[in-house]
Design a protein around this nucleic acid. Structure first.
Lengths: 155, 155
DNA sequence: TCCAGTGGTTGCATTATTAAACTAGATTGC
DNA sequence: GCAATCTAGTTTAATAATGCAACCACTGGA
């Protein structure tokens, strides 16, 4: 049976989901962006079972999203910190946040703001090379000329 | 046991994940953006079990992301199409795609391009009110003044 | 030394996922 | 008009993931 792996999928979205597409991983990453680093911090803040946190942290490390650093406050414990690849997930988190804010009926207790002046940030927008705003209907998928010849499953 | 529901979480990211945070939902939505509409189209293209597709489609409809329309080619069957709320997920898909493209070693067979001129789109970027580019460290979460007083769990 | 906190592991019950078989109604081929 | 096939599911039974609680070795502080 086995839970189908999307690791080798030809679709970049599927590949992303393979790395972060389960319930808890993105919440862990969200907390990592908020500055949490320790096992117990994640466990307390997210409220998931410890054995699952163990598995998720290991998977995130294996995917190169988190890395274990040997302490920072002098204690003998280790910490989990975001790699550059992990920090690259920032736009995804922002997009998820903005989607809820836009389409959920009620307001949320926190607001994402510019640290320099405390003002809310802009909405993420997709733009063309020349700066024009692009909606879903203004884009299409084109074969990538850099790729010679491969099976074209899961566009 | 029960899989913990994040439906009432105070965190907008958690709420998004409650709606679309499982393996298959986002792939279904991706295919919906590509123009697929029928049960069998999703099933063939994604390759998931039909009973699961049934459950996922129902959940997406309940969340207001998809809606069922009564045909379009004249047949007596129904179709699943994106609502405005569903189309609002576009930046999330783009962010997932761009993350894979940036951090995956190998190239992907398709490229997201501007339909008007076939040129690749820009990377999604978070900008301040005045247009300055913002990274993860340039932002913070501030209490939302619109919210009176609530439990502040799951920031 | 004692004792709470950290970072897990193990066992077991419950739930989710899966492939495969089955089905009722719609559509097509002839 | 009738059989074959397609559509959009449901059912079943096996396997995998999840959750909770208990346990455990090690650390750090009083």
């Amino acid at each position: 049976m086995k839970r189908t792996s999307l690791e080798k999928a030809d679709c970049p979205i599927a590949r992303s989901l393979d790395a972060i597409g389960d319930w808890w991983s993105l919440l862990i990453i969200r907390d990592a962006f908020l500055g949490l680093r320790r096992f117990s911090e994640f466990q307390k803040n997210i409220g998931l079972a410890k054995n699952i946190l163990t598995v998720r942290l290991r998977a995130l490390v294996e995917h190169g999203i988190l890395t274990t650093a040997p302490a920072s406050d002098g204690s003998a414990y280790q910490e989990y910190v975001l790699t550059p690849k992990g920090r690259g997930l920032f736009p995804i988190l922002v997009a998820l946040r903005q989607w809820s804010e836009e389409f959920s009926a009620d307001a949320f207790p926190t607001l994402l703001v510019d640290r320099d002046n405390g003002r809310p940030v802009q909405k993420l927008e997709l733009r063309a090379e020349d700066g024009r705003l692009l909606g879903p209907g203004d884009t299409e998928l084109k074969p990538n000329p850099k790729v010679s010849r491969r099976r074209r499953v899961l566009a």
